[in-house]
Nucleic acid binder design. Structure first.
Lengths: 238, 238
DNA sequence: AACGATAGGTGTACGCCGTATACCTGTCAA
DNA sequence: TTGACAGGTATACGGCGTACACCTATCGTT
């Protein structure tokens, strides 16, 4: 392409090009194969060239997170704070479904990039505009936690596996193996409960999107109830 | 100690001794400095010796998780499912506060060890005994997510920092720096809200334990309400 | 037109990491 | 006495992030 002899130069590196390539590589090959060396190769460049544009790998990861935060739908004003928040969070979730490595990356970082802070700030703004006290809004942000960014760490979660290898298809196998089902009867029972048409098991028949919305609405409804009651923090009544 | 000349042999390795040493090392020095080499040195042994007792580093991490799951208080029967669950989850949280590396380790593993499954199974048992349908119990387990194991991934969390380095003291600094407070007014506002006697900011004055219980109770109360309503899943009415 | 600064890509090397493989050695059953 | 075997050792390989010294094309200034 741009690699012909002599005169034609390769398109130059830039922080932005690096970040987008890194996101693409993590999307396709999994976060565990995102190394400075692999990334450089992908860009047709020697590894150390990257360091002219990003300080180190941690900063690269921060930049990648900023890229995907930038993909979240902007805030849509709505008189109903619950609806506005819900909509944006579900948009964030759609973004993360395209970038399965992101939860692990976010979890492993220190989280202080301006893009993330701006996103969080606007979410708090929605809460305040909806009539929540600063006090309550504070606790709500903690309660929602990573759900605000569109993910939650499930304890039995097929997508975690998928997030490492770049597998996009939904992992065919592995509910409870039969001998485990005998040892853990309650897990076996709920594995087949809430299954769908196919009567399949957790990880197969279990609808991630439904589980996410179920938990989200449980929280949002509880919060709205507190707001209506004019909830005030009663702890450490100093 | 047991290292004297000739006759006295060093106390022999064992899987258990390795796991406990690994947990101790992660507790003290942070998970990022838990390498097979460091661990071996800690045990006065050559790195490859460990591989006679654990298959590889991933299995080591699984074993470490099992160790800490074993530290969680056993289930205390209670007529009130909410109280029983709450008590055990808060016990799990106390355990994790002693092992700040654990959330990151758990998050990064594939999660299928029998010890964890047994723990989850007993929690589901509590829900079922409390009158929740298998269906509802299933969704509840997803909704609680990692909170069942006593942690939640906060987005602004000082303990994540602490979880990497082995710092045990609660990280003195770092609320919002002043120029950030100007750019993110809502964050600045809630940072000082819900502060305590000292009027300090998120990460300083913010009471982790309170935030955890606030979110937990929000969920548990919402669930109990659903149970009383005889909630049934209405989605995908196939 | 010549030049020096500078931005950006290169090459080499260091010290970590996990772990495969082969080897040694002390213990104990036969 | 022997020989199998469990468990600790020695060496080595390929990968990682990245420090450091180097080269080179570009461009504003003289």
């Amino acid at each position: 392409m741009a690699e012909q002899a002599g005169t034609l130069r390769r398109t130059p590196l830039s922080r932005d090009r690096i970040l987008r390539a890194a996101v693409a590589l993590a999307d396709e090959a999994g976060i565990e194969s995102l190394s400075m060396r692999n990334l450089a190769q992908e860009l047709g460049v020697v590894p150390m060239a990257l360091y002219k544009h990003v300080a180190n790998k941690d900063e690269l990861l921060d930049g990648m997170i900023d890229v995907i935060v930038g993909e979240i739908e902007p805030l849509v004003p709505d008189a109903d704070w619950q609806r506005a928040l819900r909509r944006r969070i579900l948009s964030a979730r759609q973004v993360l479904r395209r970038h399965l490595w992101a939860p692990l990356a976010i979890e492993s970082r220190n989280m202080a990039t301006p893009a993330v802070l701006a996103y969080l700030d606007s979410m708090v703004g929605t809460l305040r505009a909806g009539g929540l006290s600063a006090d309550l809004a504070h606790h709500v942000m903690h309660a929602l936690g990573s759900r605000i960014l569109g993910f939650s760490q499930e304890l039995f979660d097929a997508s975690r596996q998928a997030g490492r290898s770049g597998a996009t298809e939904p992992e065919p196998a592995a509910g409870l193996p039969p001998e485990a089902a005998a040892r853990f009867p309650h897990l076996a029972e709920i594995a087949t409960a809430a299954s769908h048409d196919d009567g399949s098991v957790v990880g197969q028949g279990c609808d991630d999107q439904f589980e996410f919305e179920f938990a989200l609405d449980l929280l949002l409804d509880g919060i709205e109830r507190l707001r209506q009651q004019g909830w005030r923090s009663a702890h450490r009544p100093g």
